[in-house]
Amino acid sequence: MENDPILRIEDIKKAYRAREILKGISLSISKGELKVLIGPSGGGKSTLLQCINFLVMPDGGDVWLEGRKVNPHRKRELYGYRQQVGMIFQDFNLFDHLSALQNVQIALLRVKGMDKKSARERAVAELERVGLGKHIDHYPAQLSGGQKQRVSIARALAMDPKVMLLDEPTSALDPELIGEVLAVIKNLVANGMTMIMATHQISFSSAFATEIIFMEDGLIVEQGPPSKILSSAECARTKEFCSKIYDLHGEGN
């Protein structure tokens, strides 16, 4: 049963007014895989990731977690499902009024109902794991972008997610801070975390992704292992896009 998908989505559709943003997206991911979403701006990557945990309610399609279909209209079920799907945002979205430690432990206390002592221990452990053991009492306003993103990763990890969705986790960062966040994500890959990530970090993806998915205009144009997508894509659009981001981000990771 190794290869049973942890998460499977089928025919996800989303339109804003008459504009179709997602035109029927299906994909599945198995334990320990990292699937990277690439594609031009406005192609629907963020919308897709947010549809997967129903932050954006899809107009149609289904989501299955470990073989069980999620019914997003049943609130209890939805909240329970979201606890198992971690999400990382481009601009971190830390809770501004809480210290790093409190950011990580608040969901443990309020959502999981953990007692204070274990929540604190867990939060400290997660912050240490992302290299922020010395910053647990700092507030978001006192952290750099890279540190904020690492806090947000610790916050998601503390919930013991089965899958993580990462929406361009490094694209709001100054170049010299990208490395520290990628190092943390690398670590997750090494520890077998299952992830879907939108990113334009091509060299990172080519080294660590199980599969790269090229998305444009709400459709998956092409998908396959990095070696194939990056060097011998079948579709002309994929090739063109890949060569463009190579020029932009290829060097110096």
Binding site: N53, R82, F89, N93, L94
Partner: peptide, 14 residues
């Protein structure tokens, strides 16, 4: 900021 609400919802907050 709306992002913080998304983050809270994503963590399973009602």
């Amino acid at each position: 900021k709306k992002g913080q609400m998304l983050a809270a919802q994503a963590l399973g907050f009602s």
